[in-house]
């Protein structure tokens, strides 16, 4: 009975994290983006500096009519948001935020592959949405999503493989147990490649051609309204949380920090995740969108060679220190 309670409690915590953190990131994006553009951002909802803006948005989305286009493939159209969102919910289970059994949803042996595999499956949601909407813009968005995923999955995997080589394990907890501070400069190229490729997989600016609103309206999500649209947005922000968490765990040493008591490892994890999330928002405000060909060029001529170089470097150092 105790086991059941433990599992239930863990799932509850994971669900809470999943529902709260993306909203926090979204709110931060509202405010940071506003201030970077000399604005104030939301100020009214909730009273204090618009802290409840996203809750108000959620209420608004829930009130809207759920429209399905007449020519759309009804079942797939309605299923797509769930397919986009659920993988992120599953992934968050495997990310450790502190040392020990208590600070991770469940320890997965092949953690890196689990996380990357399930994250990759989330893109199916966008593809299904793009095809099932019976809309040319949606179809274009879906096509771009697929092309982007195909080219950025490779550097992301290679960068992750480099860390796995360094640690000698593919378990996320194992990698963090083996972490030393000098991995930071050693794996910095890998970290860069992983983060950039992850941004591209999430379709965040400057890699947001699949939803480029000035070209193809909103890509695969053009026909969506109400809660289903909100689910897609939630998936995007959950993706940010997970990408930042993963980069933290794989490259920035997770719960390891220069100082801090044993019990405070999770603070380090959250802090690093928050800083990375800020960087994502910062990049969104700063850079214009890449063109589709520039996107492919960046992946194949920059990130893949960099990732391969990182793997070579990891291998050499690994052999030398043995």
């Amino acid at each position: 009975m105790n086991d059941v309670l433990d599992v239930a409690l863990r799932l509850l915590v994971v669900l809470a994290v999943f529902l709260v953190l993306p909203l926090v990131v979204g709110q931060t994006e509202h405010k940071v983006m506003a201030h970077m553009q000399g604005r104030l951002g939301p100020m009214y909802a909730g009273g204090f500096h618009g802290w409840a803006q996203l809750i108000a948005d959620g209420v608004k989305f829930a009130q809207k009519e759920d429209v399905v286009p007449a020519n759309a493939d009804r079942r797939i159209f309605q299923l797509a948001p769930a397919v986009a969102l659920i993988p992120y919910l599953i992934v968050i289970v495997a990310i450790p935020i502190g040392p020990g059994e208590g600070a991770v949803g469940t320890v997965v042996d092949a953690g890196i592959f689990f996380v990357l595999a399930v994250m990759g499956a989330g893109v199916l949601g966008s593809l299904m949405a793009g095809w099932a909407s019976a809309n040319k813009f949606s179809l274009l968005g879906g096509l771009r999503t697929a092309a982007q995923l195909l080219s950025y999955e490779l550097p992301m995997l290679l960068a992750a493989a480099s860390v796995a080589m360094a640690a000698g394990t593919v378990s996320l907890v194992g990698i963090l147990d083996a972490f030393e501070w000098w991995w930071l400069p050693w794996q910095i190229i890998g970290a860069f490649v992983f983060f950039v490729a992850g941004l591209a997989e999430l379709q965040r600016p400057p890699f947001d051609m699949p939803i480029a609103d000035s070209e193809i309206i909103f890509g695969a999500y053009t026909e969506y309204t109400g809660l289903r649209f909100a689910l897609f947005l939630l998936a995007e922000y959950a993706g940010i949380v997970i990408l930042c968490g993963l980069t933290t765990v794989l490259f920035l040493g997770g719960w390891h920090g220069p100082w801090g008591a044993d019990g405070l490892g999770w603070v380090w994890t959250l802090l690093k995740t928050a800083v990375l999330a800020f960087v994502i928002i910062w990049l969104r405000v700063t850079t214009p969108r890449l063109r589709e060909d520039q996107l492919q060029k960046l992946a194949w001529t920059t990130l893949v060679p960099l990732a391969l170089a990182q793997i070579a470097l990891t291998g050499i150092v690994k052999v030398v220190i043995q």
């Binding site: 940071v32 000399g38 604005r39 104030l40 910062w282 405000v285 700063t286």
Partner: peptide, 13 residues
């Protein structure tokens, strides 16, 4: 963008 963030906003409330 970072510099702009630290400056006072121009929004009139």
């Amino acid at each position: 963008t970072l510099r702009t963030m630290t400056k006072k906003t121009v929004t009139a409330q």
